[in-house]
Write a protein that binds this DNA or RNA. Structure first.
Lengths: 188, 188
DNA sequence: GTCTATACGATGATAGAC
DNA sequence: GTCTATCATCGTATAGAC
């Protein structure tokens, strides 16, 4: 495997485990086995490296989302699957976790995260609209707003879990979300 | 005003605007006008200072929560008020925002955040249970799980808003949450 | 209590040899 | 492409004078 990819993989790991500010070039070098020269030959600097690493992460996350929101599936099944995917790690969303850092907000990295959120919400909204159209959800439900709520439950679930050190908080947040969606479905 | 309080206020501002890792003793000194000697006289170090500052923040946030969840209010009104309090800042929750940082997770600071989350969820759960008892919400709704979902919507709403740079994302997440609660209320 | 001086490792990057 | 110096700056803390 090329040094470049070694560096990229190390950066991905460190971003995931420690965040952007804590991901120093030195740590990347240690973890990848590459020297300083290699790092600055392949990447312009720390932010450029993170940008490249997170572009790969973005692709991986979108692939998982595409699988959950397969257009061939029933819309309620898509929602169920999104809200029941096990999310046990206390580490948080590989992209969402980063926006707590001020440096991220001020950098180009933030656009990757924002676009990913929009991507997820678009899938959620489509499923909600289809479910409304087929009579599975009440016709006046605000699909746009609810899509944001459901995405927020996942991101916020990670926050609760990390804050309390209890991974079940995420599971409860997800269960509560489905309980509300299911309640709206069966009762209108 | 005492130097000690100046230092504490500066720390609170920096924690709120930049996070824990970015809050260096040097920045606290500049912002507070205090010298290094004062800082280390009143506090053992950076973590001790943050702990003291966030203990004050915790009290302030709990007071706001107590006001929203006034026991004299109708339970549905309490839920409505929690989900309709304007949360326009992109800065995020003064406590929840911090748990993205690895250093926080490994420190005693995390227990403050976790306890605050539990406090909020307890109030939410109580309101949900009362609403169920009075027939405003369906009897089988899982109050524990939904309380976590609603708290997660607030924390996650901040994440969405910061990631996209659009404060309205938080507002939408809150509106969607109320749409679901209200839908459950009117339809069962 | 408050200040200045000092220490030492880490950070993020550049220079130049191979 | 990859490596090893080398650098200025910052972060965190201690020492000791006033």
């Amino acid at each position: 495997m090329s040094k470049r990819q070694n560096i990229l993989d190390a950066a991905k790991n460190l971003l995931w485990e420690q965040g952007f500010e804590a991901m120093s070039p030195k740590k990347v070098m240690r973890l990848s086995g590459a020297g300083q020269g290699s790092l600055y030959h392949h990447f312009e600097g720390k932010e450029d490296l993170a940008l490249a690493a997170l572009t790969e992460v973005d692709s991986e996350l979108r692939a998982a989302i595409d699988s959950i929101f397969d257009a061939g599936k029933d819309p309620m099944d898509r929602l169920y699957d999104y809200l029941n995917t096990p999310r046990g790690e206390l580490q948080g969303c590989k992209l969402g976790r980063l926006v707590g850092e001020k440096t991220i907000i001020e950098s180009n990295i933030c656009t990757i995260v924002g676009a990913y959120f929009d991507y997820v919400c678009a899938h959620l909204k489509a499923a909600l609209l289809e479910a409304k159209a087929s009579g599975d959800l009440p016709p006046h439900l605000d699909a746009e707003a609810v899509s944001r709520s459901l995405a927020a439950i996942i991101q916020g679930g990670y926050i609760l879990a990390r804050g309390t050190g209890d991974a079940r908080q995420m599971q409860m947040a997800q269960e509560g979300a489905w309980a509300m969606i299911e309640g709206l479905s069966s009762a209108h």
